[in-house]
Protein backbone atom coordinates (compact mmCIF):
# COMPACT_ATOMS: atom_id res chain seq x y z
CA UNK A 1 0.00 0.00 0.00
CA UNK A 2 2.68 2.48 0.98
CA UNK A 3 4.73 1.60 -2.07
CA UNK A 4 1.84 2.17 -4.47
CA UNK A 5 0.96 5.46 -2.78
CA UNK A 6 4.58 6.46 -3.02
CA UNK A 7 4.51 5.64 -6.73
CA UNK A 8 1.32 7.66 -7.17
CA UNK A 9 2.83 10.75 -5.59
CA UNK A 10 6.05 10.26 -7.52
CA UNK A 11 4.35 10.18 -10.92
CA UNK A 12 1.81 12.76 -9.76
CA UNK A 13 4.55 15.29 -9.27
CA UNK A 14 5.67 14.70 -12.87
CA UNK A 15 2.12 14.75 -14.28
CA UNK A 16 1.69 18.05 -12.43
CA UNK A 17 3.92 19.68 -15.04
CA UNK A 18 1.46 18.54 -17.71
CA UNK A 19 -1.43 19.83 -15.59
CA UNK A 20 0.28 23.23 -15.31
CA UNK A 21 0.40 23.30 -19.11
CA UNK A 22 -3.30 22.50 -19.32
CA UNK A 23 -3.98 25.22 -16.74
CA UNK A 24 -2.20 27.74 -19.00
CA UNK A 25 -4.48 27.04 -21.94
CA UNK A 26 -7.78 26.14 -20.31
CA UNK A 27 -7.79 28.67 -17.54
CA UNK A 28 -5.38 31.45 -18.41
CA UNK A 29 -6.00 31.68 -22.16
CA UNK A 30 -9.51 30.21 -22.08
CA UNK A 31 -8.40 28.08 -25.01
CA UNK A 32 -9.61 24.45 -24.83
CA UNK A 33 -6.49 22.95 -26.34
CA UNK A 34 -6.65 19.28 -27.28
CA UNK A 35 -3.13 19.20 -28.71
CA UNK A 36 -2.11 17.77 -25.34
CA UNK A 37 -2.94 14.14 -26.23
CA UNK A 38 -0.43 14.38 -29.05
CA UNK A 39 2.22 16.67 -27.60
CA UNK A 40 2.57 14.54 -24.46
CA UNK A 41 3.60 11.61 -26.68
CA UNK A 42 5.75 13.87 -28.84
CA UNK A 43 7.68 14.77 -25.71
CA UNK A 44 8.16 11.12 -24.75
CA UNK A 45 9.05 10.13 -28.32
CA UNK A 46 11.58 12.86 -28.94
CA UNK A 47 13.27 12.13 -25.62
CA UNK A 48 13.29 8.36 -26.26
CA UNK A 49 14.68 8.68 -29.77
CA UNK A 50 17.36 11.11 -28.63
CA UNK A 51 18.38 8.94 -25.71
CA UNK A 52 18.50 5.79 -27.81
CA UNK A 53 20.78 7.70 -30.18
CA UNK A 54 23.16 8.64 -27.40
CA UNK A 55 22.04 12.20 -26.66
CA UNK A 56 22.59 13.05 -22.98
CA UNK A 57 19.23 12.58 -21.18
CA UNK A 58 19.04 16.15 -19.92
CA UNK A 59 19.49 17.45 -23.46
CA UNK A 60 17.02 14.90 -24.80
CA UNK A 61 14.49 16.16 -22.28
CA UNK A 62 15.04 19.74 -23.41
CA UNK A 63 14.57 18.68 -27.04
CA UNK A 64 11.23 17.23 -26.00
CA UNK A 65 10.19 20.51 -24.42
CA UNK A 66 11.14 22.37 -27.59
CA UNK A 67 9.21 19.93 -29.79
CA UNK A 68 6.10 20.39 -27.65
CA UNK A 69 6.51 24.15 -27.81
CA UNK A 70 6.63 24.02 -31.61
CA UNK A 71 3.57 21.76 -31.80
CA UNK A 72 1.66 24.16 -29.55
CA UNK A 73 2.73 27.14 -31.64
CA UNK A 74 1.30 25.47 -34.72
CA UNK A 75 -2.02 24.90 -32.96
CA UNK A 76 -1.97 28.57 -31.95
CA UNK A 77 -1.17 29.60 -35.52
CA UNK A 78 -4.03 27.50 -36.88
CA UNK A 79 -6.42 29.18 -34.49
CA UNK A 80 -5.25 32.79 -34.72
CA UNK A 81 -3.98 33.24 -38.28
CA UNK A 82 -5.94 30.36 -39.83
CA UNK A 83 -9.15 31.32 -37.99
CA UNK A 84 -9.82 27.67 -37.20
CA UNK A 85 -12.06 27.05 -34.19
CA UNK A 86 -10.01 26.47 -31.02
CA UNK A 87 -11.24 22.94 -30.35
CA UNK A 88 -10.82 21.93 -33.97
CA UNK A 89 -7.28 23.30 -34.28
CA UNK A 90 -6.29 21.20 -31.26
CA UNK A 91 -7.96 18.09 -32.65
CA UNK A 92 -6.28 18.57 -36.03
CA UNK A 93 -2.88 19.00 -34.43
CA UNK A 94 -3.42 16.02 -32.13
CA UNK A 95 -4.33 13.85 -35.11
CA UNK A 96 -1.36 15.02 -37.14
CA UNK A 97 0.93 14.45 -34.18
CA UNK A 98 -0.14 10.81 -33.95
CA UNK A 99 1.49 10.11 -37.30
CA UNK A 100 4.47 12.29 -36.50
CA UNK A 101 5.00 10.50 -33.19
CA UNK A 102 4.84 7.14 -34.93
CA UNK A 103 7.49 8.35 -37.36
CA UNK A 104 9.69 9.60 -34.55
CA UNK A 105 9.42 6.30 -32.69
CA UNK A 106 9.75 4.23 -35.87
CA UNK A 107 7.59 1.61 -34.15
CA UNK A 108 4.63 1.77 -31.77
CA UNK A 109 6.80 1.39 -28.69
CA UNK A 110 10.39 2.38 -28.12
CA UNK A 111 12.08 0.95 -25.05
CA UNK A 112 14.64 2.83 -22.98
CA UNK A 113 15.13 0.01 -20.49
CA UNK A 114 18.74 -0.50 -21.43
CA UNK A 115 19.51 3.18 -21.88
CA UNK A 116 20.73 5.73 -19.42
CA UNK A 117 17.72 7.89 -18.62
CA UNK A 118 17.71 11.08 -16.62
CA UNK A 119 16.45 9.16 -13.59
CA UNK A 120 19.14 6.48 -13.77
CA UNK A 121 21.75 9.22 -13.84
CA UNK A 122 20.02 10.86 -10.95
CA UNK A 123 19.93 7.58 -9.05
CA UNK A 124 23.65 6.95 -9.29
CA UNK A 125 24.36 10.48 -8.20
CA UNK A 126 21.85 10.22 -5.37
CA UNK A 127 23.02 6.93 -3.91
CA UNK A 128 26.26 8.61 -2.87
CA UNK A 129 24.35 10.93 -0.56
CA UNK A 130 22.91 8.15 1.56
CA UNK A 131 19.61 10.00 1.93
CA UNK A 132 17.65 6.89 0.94
CA UNK A 133 19.05 4.87 3.80
CA UNK A 134 18.34 7.62 6.26
CA UNK A 135 14.73 8.10 5.13
CA UNK A 136 14.03 4.40 4.83
CA UNK A 137 15.41 3.58 8.24
CA UNK A 138 13.23 6.38 9.56
CA UNK A 139 10.21 4.73 7.93
CA UNK A 140 11.35 1.34 9.16
CA UNK A 141 10.55 2.59 12.65
CA UNK A 142 6.88 2.58 11.64
CA UNK A 143 7.12 -1.07 10.78
CA UNK A 144 6.82 -0.66 7.00
CA UNK A 145 8.56 -3.62 5.45
CA UNK A 146 8.49 -2.72 1.76
CA UNK A 147 10.24 0.58 1.26
CA UNK A 148 10.78 2.76 -1.81
CA UNK A 149 13.93 1.87 -3.74
CA UNK A 150 14.83 5.51 -4.11
CA UNK A 151 13.65 8.89 -2.94
CA UNK A 152 15.69 10.62 -5.60
CA UNK A 153 12.96 10.94 -8.22
CA UNK A 154 10.31 12.21 -5.85
CA UNK A 155 12.61 14.73 -4.21
CA UNK A 156 14.20 16.10 -7.34
CA UNK A 157 10.99 16.16 -9.35
CA UNK A 158 9.19 17.93 -6.53
CA UNK A 159 11.88 20.60 -6.63
CA UNK A 160 11.73 20.84 -10.44
CA UNK A 161 7.93 21.08 -10.45
CA UNK A 162 7.95 23.76 -7.78
CA UNK A 163 10.54 25.72 -9.75
CA UNK A 164 8.35 25.48 -12.85
CA UNK A 165 5.40 26.64 -10.78
CA UNK A 166 7.34 29.64 -9.45
CA UNK A 167 8.54 30.61 -12.92
CA UNK A 168 4.95 30.32 -14.19
CA UNK A 169 3.74 32.50 -11.32
CA UNK A 170 6.36 35.08 -12.14
CA UNK A 171 5.63 34.95 -15.87
CA UNK A 172 1.92 35.51 -15.32
CA UNK A 173 2.66 38.62 -13.29
CA UNK A 174 4.96 40.22 -15.83
CA UNK A 175 3.74 42.79 -18.32
CA UNK A 176 3.61 40.06 -20.96
CA UNK A 177 1.90 37.66 -18.57
CA UNK A 178 -0.80 40.18 -17.62
CA UNK A 179 -1.62 40.60 -21.31
CA UNK A 180 -1.73 36.82 -21.70
CA UNK A 181 -4.19 36.50 -18.83
CA UNK A 182 -6.32 39.29 -20.25
CA UNK A 183 -6.71 37.30 -23.48
CA UNK A 184 -8.64 34.71 -21.53
CA UNK A 185 -10.53 37.34 -19.59
CA UNK A 186 -11.33 40.13 -22.05
CA UNK A 187 -9.69 39.79 -25.42
CA UNK A 188 -11.24 42.87 -26.92
CA UNK A 189 -9.95 45.02 -24.11
CA UNK A 190 -6.37 43.87 -24.26
CA UNK A 191 -6.36 44.41 -28.02
CA UNK A 192 -7.54 47.96 -27.43
CA UNK A 193 -4.59 48.27 -25.05
CA UNK A 194 -2.17 47.57 -27.86
CA UNK A 195 -1.35 43.92 -27.27
CA UNK A 196 -0.81 41.58 -30.19
CA UNK A 197 -3.29 38.94 -29.09
CA UNK A 198 -2.45 36.56 -31.95
CA UNK A 199 1.23 36.35 -31.07
CA UNK A 200 0.51 36.10 -27.37
CA UNK A 201 -1.94 33.25 -27.95
CA UNK A 202 0.57 31.41 -30.14
CA UNK A 203 3.31 31.72 -27.53
CA UNK A 204 0.89 30.82 -24.73
CA UNK A 205 -0.30 27.62 -26.39
CA UNK A 206 3.32 26.87 -27.28
CA UNK A 207 4.49 27.22 -23.68
CA UNK A 208 1.62 25.08 -22.48
CA UNK A 209 2.51 22.25 -24.84
CA UNK A 210 6.19 22.67 -24.02
CA UNK A 211 5.32 21.83 -20.41
CA UNK A 212 3.10 18.95 -21.52
CA UNK A 213 5.89 17.50 -23.67
CA UNK A 214 8.39 17.92 -20.84
CA UNK A 215 6.06 15.97 -18.60
CA UNK A 216 5.70 13.31 -21.31
CA UNK A 217 9.47 13.04 -21.69
CA UNK A 218 9.89 12.52 -17.96
CA UNK A 219 7.03 10.03 -17.64
CA UNK A 220 8.52 8.12 -20.57
CA UNK A 221 11.89 7.93 -18.87
CA UNK A 222 10.30 6.99 -15.57
CA UNK A 223 8.52 4.05 -17.19
CA UNK A 224 11.43 3.18 -19.46
CA UNK A 225 9.54 3.42 -22.76
CA UNK A 226 7.66 5.73 -25.11
CA UNK A 227 4.44 4.43 -26.62
CA UNK A 228 2.45 6.06 -29.40
CA UNK A 229 -0.77 5.54 -27.42
CA UNK A 230 0.45 6.81 -24.06
CA UNK A 231 -1.25 10.20 -24.56
CA UNK A 232 -4.81 9.02 -25.11
CA UNK A 233 -7.11 10.86 -22.73
CA UNK A 234 -4.25 12.96 -21.39
CA UNK A 235 -6.19 16.19 -21.83
CA UNK A 236 -9.01 14.86 -19.66
CA UNK A 237 -6.50 13.82 -17.02
CA UNK A 238 -5.02 17.31 -17.15
CA UNK A 239 -8.45 18.85 -16.83
CA UNK A 240 -9.37 16.55 -13.98
CA UNK A 241 -6.19 17.58 -12.17
CA UNK A 242 -6.92 21.28 -12.68
CA UNK A 243 -10.52 20.94 -11.57
CA UNK A 244 -9.84 18.73 -8.55
CA UNK A 245 -7.04 21.05 -7.47
CA UNK A 246 -9.11 24.18 -7.85
CA UNK A 247 -12.01 22.67 -5.95
CA UNK A 248 -9.83 21.54 -3.05
CA UNK A 249 -7.28 24.31 -2.79
CA UNK A 250 -8.91 27.41 -4.28
CA UNK A 251 -7.86 29.91 -6.91
CA UNK A 252 -7.69 33.16 -5.03
CA UNK A 253 -4.33 34.20 -6.46
CA UNK A 254 -2.19 32.92 -9.30
CA UNK A 255 0.29 31.36 -6.89
CA UNK A 256 -2.55 29.60 -5.10
CA UNK A 257 -4.09 28.37 -8.35
CA UNK A 258 -0.86 26.87 -9.69
CA UNK A 259 -0.22 25.19 -6.35
CA UNK A 260 -3.77 23.84 -6.50
CA UNK A 261 -3.09 22.40 -9.96
CA UNK A 262 -0.04 20.54 -8.68
CA UNK A 263 -2.03 19.26 -5.72
CA UNK A 264 -4.82 18.22 -8.06
CA UNK A 265 -2.43 16.23 -10.25
CA UNK A 266 -1.05 14.33 -7.27
CA UNK A 267 -4.49 13.66 -5.82
CA UNK A 268 -5.66 12.45 -9.20
CA UNK A 269 -2.86 9.83 -9.25
CA UNK A 270 -3.79 8.78 -5.74
CA UNK A 271 -7.43 8.39 -6.75
CA UNK A 272 -6.34 6.26 -9.71
CA UNK A 273 -4.18 4.07 -7.50
CA UNK A 274 -6.99 3.58 -5.01
CA UNK A 275 -9.52 2.88 -7.73
CA UNK A 276 -7.30 0.19 -9.21
CA UNK A 277 -7.27 -1.63 -5.89
CA UNK A 278 -11.04 -1.96 -6.02
CA UNK A 279 -11.77 -5.51 -7.19
CA UNK A 280 -14.44 -4.91 -9.81
CA UNK A 281 -12.52 -2.10 -11.56
CA UNK A 282 -10.07 -2.74 -14.37
CA UNK A 283 -7.26 -0.57 -15.68
CA UNK A 284 -9.33 0.24 -18.76
CA UNK A 285 -12.08 1.76 -16.60
CA UNK A 286 -9.85 4.62 -15.54
CA UNK A 287 -10.67 6.78 -18.55
CA UNK A 288 -14.35 6.46 -17.75
CA UNK A 289 -13.77 7.40 -14.13
CA UNK A 290 -11.64 10.37 -15.16
CA UNK A 291 -14.28 11.61 -17.55
CA UNK A 292 -16.90 11.14 -14.83
CA UNK A 293 -14.83 13.22 -12.40
CA UNK A 294 -14.57 16.05 -14.92
CA UNK A 295 -18.26 15.87 -15.79
CA UNK A 296 -19.30 15.96 -12.14
CA UNK A 297 -16.93 18.81 -11.43
CA UNK A 298 -18.28 20.79 -14.38
CA UNK A 299 -21.96 20.07 -13.90
CA UNK A 300 -22.36 19.92 -10.12
CA UNK A 301 -21.74 23.62 -9.39
CA UNK A 302 -24.26 24.66 -12.07
CA UNK A 303 -26.94 22.27 -10.83
CA UNK A 304 -26.25 23.39 -7.29
CA UNK A 305 -26.68 27.01 -8.33
CA UNK A 306 -29.97 26.34 -10.11
CA UNK A 307 -31.28 24.37 -7.13
CA UNK A 308 -30.34 27.10 -4.71
CA UNK A 309 -32.00 29.75 -6.84
CA UNK A 310 -35.16 27.65 -7.09
CA UNK A 311 -35.24 27.09 -3.35
CA UNK A 312 -34.79 30.78 -2.73
CA UNK A 313 -37.71 31.62 -5.02
CA UNK A 314 -39.98 29.05 -3.41
CA UNK A 315 -39.14 30.39 0.02
CA UNK A 316 -39.78 33.94 -1.10
CA UNK A 317 -43.17 33.00 -2.57
CA UNK A 318 -44.12 31.43 0.75
CA UNK A 319 -43.10 34.56 2.60
CA UNK A 320 -45.23 36.65 0.30
CA UNK A 321 -48.35 34.81 1.35
CA UNK A 322 -48.02 31.50 -0.43
CA UNK A 323 -49.49 30.13 -3.63
CA UNK A 324 -53.26 30.17 -3.80
CA UNK A 325 -53.29 26.67 -5.29
CA UNK A 326 -50.94 25.15 -2.76
Amino acid sequence: MFISMFGAVESGVIYAIMALGVYLTFRVLDFPDLTVDGSFVTGASVAALSIVNGVPPILATLFALLAGFLAGCITGLLHTKGKVNALLSGILMMTALYSINLRILGQPTLSMLHETTIFKQLGSFWSVTGIDNALNSLLGVFGLDRLPSTWAILTVMAVVTVIIKLVTDFYLKTEVGLALRAIGDNKRMIRSLSANTDNLTIVGVGLSNGLVALSGALIGQLGGFADVNMGIGMIVIGLASVIIGEALFGTKTIARATLAVIGGAIIYRIIVTLALRVDFLETGDMKFITAAIVIIALVAPKVHQVQREKKRRIQKRKQLGGDSHA
Binding site: E175, V176, A179, L193, A195
Partner: peptide, 20 residues
Protein backbone atom coordinates in the same frame (compact mmCIF):
# COMPACT_ATOMS: atom_id res chain seq x y z
CA UNK B 1 -3.86 47.37 -10.21
CA UNK B 2 -3.33 44.67 -12.84
CA UNK B 3 -5.84 46.33 -15.14
CA UNK B 4 -4.10 49.66 -14.71
CA UNK B 5 -0.72 48.02 -15.32
CA UNK B 6 -1.99 46.64 -18.62
CA UNK B 7 -3.19 50.07 -19.65
CA UNK B 8 0.11 51.57 -18.55
CA UNK B 9 1.93 49.26 -20.98
CA UNK B 10 -0.20 50.54 -23.84
CA UNK B 11 2.43 52.72 -25.47
CA UNK B 12 5.45 50.70 -24.34
CA UNK B 13 6.89 47.36 -25.25
CA UNK B 14 5.62 44.69 -22.88
CA UNK B 15 8.55 43.05 -21.14
CA UNK B 16 9.27 40.19 -18.77
CA UNK B 17 9.23 42.42 -15.74
CA UNK B 18 6.65 42.67 -12.98
CA UNK B 19 3.65 44.60 -14.26
CA UNK B 20 2.68 45.80 -10.80
Amino acid sequence: EENLAMAYSRDKKRRLKFGV
